[in-house]
Each structure stands twice: as C-alpha cells, then as structure tokens.
C-alpha cells in the first residue's frame, strides 16, 4: 500500500486577477512519477512553480506527507527543481554543481566527493567532474542538472520540461534514461511537459491540464485508454475523433459496442484483405516503419490508415481496412 506524498487541494494561482491555475487538486503517491501534460500556456509550469514555492497561492493548499508546506520558502521545502535548460551555475565545474547542495549541508569533503562520483555514474557522466558547463552538450547539461537535483535525495523532484530543449533522438533516449534513473533512485517526481511521448515514457501517472484546469488524471494507461474528451484525445496523440454513426461503424468493425465518440490513432486502421471497412486509397506515403495511407472510407470519409512495408497501394485503388481495437479509445461524453 503506497502512501500519499504530494497532495494539492484546490490550488489556485492568479496574477492580477488572471487565473493561471484554477482549483487544481491532485495526489501523488510516494515513489511514483506524475506527468502534468498540457499545451503551452495551460498553467502547468505555474502549477509546478507553485509547488516549488516560487509562486504564491491565491487559494488552496499544498501538503507533503500530510504536512502543510504553503508557508515554507522554496529553500526549506526540500523539493529540488530541474529546469528546462538546466540552469547550471556556469562558473562551477560539473562536480561542484552536482555537489552544491551537499556543500550547503556541510557534508564532509570525502563524503561529498564519493556521493558526486556516484551520482555522475548514475547519470552516465563518469569522468566529467572537472568540466565546465559551457563545454557540455545539451544532453550532458541536462544529465548534470538531474544529478545536481538528485544529490540531496529530495523528497520530491520537480521537473520543468526536462527534455524539451533537446533534439528529437536525444530526447527519446534521455527519456528512457530518465525513467531508469528515477526508478533506481526511488524518487517521487512531478514533471510538466507538453510532449505526450515523453510523459508516456517517464511517468506512472498522468494529469492533463487545459486553460488552468485539470481535465483528467489517473494512472497513465487508464488516461491513455479513455481520454475524457475530444481535445484531450487529440492532445494525447490520437489522429482523429469520430462521432455518431461514423464512430459506431468503426466500433462495430472492431466488434465493440457503440459510444458517443471515438478517438482513433493513426495506426488504428490497417489495410487487410480480411478487413470489413472498404474504401478508396487517396494517398500513400512510405515511412521507415510502414506505409501511411489516407483512405476515403465508404460512408465515412477520409481516415488515416497504415499498411505493412513493401505493400503497394496506388491512389484510386480499392482497399479493405481492419480495426485494431487497442488503438482506438471510446470517449464517453460527446
């Protein structure tokens, strides 16, 4: 049985009457990673800063392990914050950056050195101790920032778009590493991001925010499988949302009961002779993994579909589509 670490109730942050975060309530169990996902400007970063103690609350309360932390200044909360661009101290070496919080706690020199070495090994930067931040690549800098934040074994780690400043391939790799590191350290973490893949890779739980409000939250697979509404579905990476009769037809093809709307991933429809949704190919484009089609499905209209590599589908050709039930998500409310 896990216990609640962070608990937000009705947290509201307003600047000069403009509400950036509107009555957000959340719970985060010990040892789990929660991703707050939302488009830019939705208030997710403000929420993170409020938890860090950098934005005063207008209303609501923030508790950690049952204890009120609202009145504590940032440096007494014990929540380490990692920024999008690392914010390393440029005049300090990697080792001194990582050991910064340890020196604040007056840890012995030898102890600090061994802990720093341990952390650098954890983030895969052994041998980087004497480098200056300016000589590091973007990915290396983020690793150092992570090690610095983990150094004091914070009771909560706050990650503000930790991978957004990196390029796509590096981001993917580092997301996997980040998950591994957080697991290994047993860290409770709150991460904000606008990238659903990143959230999916790193987090256990997901909270979706829009226009300052919490739209949906829960274990990541649950949110993924059942987006609360159309906008959430599109934000989670679903390609289209079908409604009414269209939704019913696709669900019927998947052998499932009808719902008001249906979110469909790009790969939910697969070209297959045994499929029961006929249509005409509008366009076909090969990618390294598969062939991406746009098919004018009879009675529905244009839908995305995929076909295995090596298959040839010319525009105008007739094709049958099969529905992969794991790649569609029914949306209860229209």
């Amino acid at each position: 049985m896990t216990t609640t670490a962070l608990s937000l109730s009705d947290v509201t942050v307003a600047y000069d009457g403009v509400t950036a975060v509107d009555r957000v309530s959340l719970e985060l169990p010990h040892g789990e990673v929660l991703a707050v996902l939302g488009p830019s400007g939705c208030g997710k970063s403000t929420l993170l800063r409020a938890v860090a103690g950098l934005e005063p609350l207008t209303e609501g309360r923030i508790r950690f392990a049952g204890e009120d932390v609202d009145h504590l200044p940032t440096h007494k909360r014990g929540f380490a914050l990692m920024f999008q661009d690392g914010q390393l101290f440029a005049h300090l070496s990697v080792a001194r950056n990582v050991g910064y919080a340890l020196r604040l706690r007056r840890l012995g020199r030898a102890e600090t050195a061994s802990r720093v070495a341990e952390l650098l090994e954890l983030v895969g930067l052994t041998g980087y101790a004497d480098r200056l931040p300016a000589t590091l690549s973007g990915g290396e800098r983020q690793r150092v920032a992570l090690a610095r934040a983990l150094a004091v074994e914070p009771r909560l780690l706050l990650l503000d778009e930790p991978l957004s400043a990196l390029d796509a391939t590096l981001r993917e790799r580092l997301a996997v590493d980040l998950r591994g590191i957080l697991r290994a350290a047993g860290t409770t973490a709150l991460m904000v991001t606008h990238d659903h893949d990143e959230a999916f890779t790193v987090a256990d739980r997901l909270a979706v925010m829009r226009r300052g409000r919490l739209v949906q939250s829960g274990p990541i697979a649950d949110v993924w499988a059942a987006p609360a509404d159309e906008e959430t579905a599109l934000f989670l990476g679903y390609a289209r949302v079908l409604t009414g009769a269209d939704a019913a037809r696709v669900l019927a093809a998947a052998g499932q009961p009808a719902t008001a709307s249906l979110a469909v991933r790009r790969s939910a429809l697969v070209a297959d002779e045994a499929g029961c949704l006929p249509g005409t190919v509008v366009s076909a484009r090969a990618t390294p993994d598969q062939v991406r089609l746009v098919v004018d499905v009879d009675g529905i209209g244009d839908l995305d579909a995929v076909a295995p590599l090596g298959s040839h589908h010319a525009p105008g050709e007739r094709v049958s589509l099969r529905v992969d039930p794991s790649r569609v998500a029914p949306i209860p409310t229209g």
Binding site: R49, A52, G53, L54, H75, L81, F83, Q87, Y100, R148
Partner: peptide
Amino acid sequence: RQRQAAASLGA
C-alpha cells in the same frame, strides 16, 4: 531561475 535553482537545492 538560477536563483530559483539554488533555492530549490536548499540555498
């Protein structure tokens, strides 16, 4: 944010 980073590390 540099100051905030320091504060979040306990400074």
